[in-house]
């Protein structure tokens, strides 16, 4: 059994402005084992990106703990850590971004982009640097002769490879991929997903794979967390979640997947109404305004996120009694 590399415990993030307080991430907890891929799905605005950014410490969580098992065998709480130690940990936790156009500085050559993390962390000689960058470039399938070019010379897929190379060059152990393939075409998506999976095998990487595309998540993840309005409503091994969802929101989400087969007509479970305003979430179960199984209790009583089956967590009052439809 591989060790637990990351424990997210009751993490919340509140964005406050003068009047409104948006609880973008609301009391989220889950565990990640070394070498796993955790998929995080949900509609836009449900807090996926914010959660990912809390984990890589791009932003500070408002409360909660993010426990990370570092390479040296010690567990650090990334939330309460001094600057110097954080600098060391930063190398191990990296991120791949959604927008292949916004994530590369248009004023730097590919070589400068990939080597920047190295130059910031180590004192390397020019030829050592070059060697390292070249080897990582060929790992992600970039022709080393491209290193002198600027990002404007590349298509989305190639840019994403550059982004991956930059994230990999420090030998990280945990990578948060925020919609890393969403902006790409299917065929390029397939290339990048294959690349990510190959790299995972080679370097024993752990991924947190954020996406709104359920079929991609199903393909790449070992476990999946479903988020709604900042809360994690279900967390389970992939197959279990897709076959036997326990949360009505997951069921609706799965039914909306458009299957790439004209002979299978999809039968969507309609979700009533719109997503509530995150600044002013409903009482009780956040999903009750749109849930077709809603009962009186759901409107008033808060739900807790509990383990209903081994490894299968869900936040629903009626999880025991409902018999929900999965796909597969």
């Amino acid at each position: 059994m591989p060790e637990t590399i990351l424990t997210v415990k009751n993490v919340s993030k509140v964005f406050s402005s003068k009047k409104v307080h948006i609880r973008a991430v609301n009391n989220v907890s889950f565990e990640v084992k070394r070498g796993e891929t955790i998929g995080i799905v949900g509609e836009s605005g449900c807090g996926k990106t914010t959660l990912g950014r809390c984990i890589v410490r791009a932003i500070d969580a408002t409360s909660g703990e993010i426990l990370y098992l570092a390479e040296d065998g010690k567990v650090y709480d990334l939330q309460n850590i001094d600057k110097k130690t954080l600098r060391g940990i930063r190398k191990e936790v990296q991120m791949i971004f959604q927008d292949p156009f916004a994530s590369l500085d248009p004023r730097m050559t590919v070589f400068d982009i990939i080597s920047e993390p190295l130059r910031a962390n180590f004192k390397l000689k020019r030829n050592e640097l070059e060697e390292k960058v070249k080897s990582i470039a060929s790992k992600v399938g970039l022709n080393p002769s491209y290193l002198k070019r600027y990002p404007h010379a590349f298509s989305g897929g190639q840019r994403q490879r550059i982004g991956i190379a930059r994230a990999l060059v420090l030998n990280p152990r945990l990578i948060v991929c925020d919609e890393a393939v969403s902006a790409l075409d299917v065929s390029v998506q397939a290339q990048v997903i294959n690349l990510l999976m190959d790299l995972q095998k080679e370097f024993k990487l752990t991924y947190i794979f954020i996406s709104h595309d359920l079929s991609v998540v199903e393909h790449i993840s070992d476990k999946v967390g479903v988020m709604y309005l900042g809360k994690m409503v279900e967390y389970a091994p992939t197959e279990e979640l897709f076959r036997n969802p326990l949360h009505p929101y997951t069921e609706a989400l799965l039914s909306a997947v458009l299957i790439a087969d004209p002979t299978v007509k999809n039968t969507r479970i309609p979700l009533e109404g719109e997503i509530p305003n995150p600044a002013n979430p409903p009482s009780g179960c956040f999903f009750h305004t749109r849930c077709r199984y809603c009962i009186e209790k759901c409107k008033t009583e808060d739900v807790s996120f509990v383990e209903k089956k081994p490894g299968h967590f869900v936040a629903c009052h009626r999880a025991d009694e409902l018999n929900l439809r999965g796909i597969v």
Binding site: S155, V186, S187, A190
Partner: peptide, 24 residues
Amino acid sequence: KGLLGSVHKIGGNNERLFSIEGTV
């Protein structure tokens, strides 16, 4: 063929996806 092959079908096997090599 390549385009259709590179789409993952939910419930299908989770081996490597077929992908069209190279770029447009």
